[in-house]
Write a protein that binds this DNA or RNA. Structure first.
Lengths: 209, 209
DNA sequence: TAGATTGTTAATCGATTAACAATC
DNA sequence: TAGATTGTTAATCGATTAACAATC
């Protein structure tokens, strides 16, 4: 059950592979690393090395069994990612995450949303609770990961509240450096890098507006 | 005016440095790389090398002038990132991005939001338009970057629409591999990696729920 | 057999860290 | 002077790519 440790870069590619393989027509039984690489704009050796880490490999001249590969990738992601994850923040910021269709690809399910504003359920598969019930929920469910998506003003308070409730790791979508004790893991989601690197690439092409 | 090319990793750190420096009390005139590194959990040599790339350096024994450093970083980001950026999608997915307080740190301003649903302005500083006016807007403004935040179903259509309007680069928040011609830059924002690496880190610590 | 493929080993490349020199 | 600092050069590390061997 111990998922093997793989690199962060590969971790970003696994859901991409999985997605791509699932998008192929059902008739596609075998698929080669070369084809996958070409479709996704990666090197073929890279794809082969990646797949070697989570599957039992393919067959020479034939490639990999598509369904097996999907299973291997999803298995890895599921066994790695089966954690109790909650989301905390205000609906204004959090609704995109509640609706995000990418987490399930990675075997992640958000269990509950704790809202700073009184609201109904925003999506039907994730219950919304008032922030006040965070403590009782966590003590009952042993939640280990909290996603934080709020205004800058609220962020540090919400962060403190999560830590007080025993949360071990925080995925922070607020563009602010959170103050946390050493034993708390924090991962800061940075939505600007992607844009900035596009800007950089356009500059190189001579596009200046 | 040609911003120097720096690595993607540094690009993620620049807004972090800028944020941190701005968060210090006004009385702080000088700040050393060692202190910055300690506060942000980075190596001091790394910070020094980073700063060397965008500033004229500090003074031995004293460090850097805080305000000068902020200016240098923000200057770099502004000159690199002064592009016409629009957001396209449905409010459900896009509202978090419209409200995101991190883009301005990087010198990026979203100029307009093109909504698939008829809605009023969501935030007061970004006008909301119906998707139908995308074409006329783009031909008037020479927009080069589009942020895509919609359901999976809508994504490819919206992507095609943007390309038809002359957009050169797409920042894609939809967990789906977009089909695009070779000359279009695509950057896929991946919100799951952060969560997945937290899961991995917790696994290593023996936390299994 | 020839060609398409996987898989392995070595080379390259870029980012980070270590060691240390310079200096105020 | 001694200590805190910047800055530079070399070493390390990890990820990717190149070259090629194996094989169906």
């Amino acid at each position: 059950m111990e998922p093997k440790k793989i690199s962060g870069k590969l971790l970003t590619r696994l859901p991409i592979y999985s997605n791509y393989l699932k998008s192929l027509p059902k008739e596609t039984v075998n698929i080669s690393a070369t084809k996958i690489a070409a479709a996704l704009g990666l090197g073929d050796v890279l794809v082969r090395k990646d797949l070697a880490q989570i599957s039992n490999g393919g067959r020479r001249k034939i490639g990999y069994v598509r369904t097996q590969l999907i299973e291997d990738i999803d298995n890895y992601l599921n066994s790695n990612n089966s954690k109790n994850v909650i989301l905390i923040g205000s609906p204004l910021y959090a609704s995109a995450l509640l609706n995000y269709e990418g987490f399930s690809n990675a075997g992640i399910k958000i269990k509950a949303f704790f809202s700073t504003d009184a609201v109904e359920n925003i999506v039907d598969h994730i219950p919304t609770y008032p922030i006040e019930s965070l403590e009782s929920y966590c003590s009952n469910h042993g939640t280990s990961i909290g996603i934080l998506s709020s205004s800058k003003n609220q962020a540090q308070n919400l962060c403190d509240a999560m830590i007080a409730c025993g949360i071990r790791a925080i995925y922070n979508f607020v563009p602010l450096h959170l103050q946390t004790p050493d034993n708390i893991l924090v991962n800061n989601a940075d939505l600007t890098v992607g844009l900035t690197s596009l800007c950089m690439a356009l500059n190189e092409k001579g596009v200046n507006h």
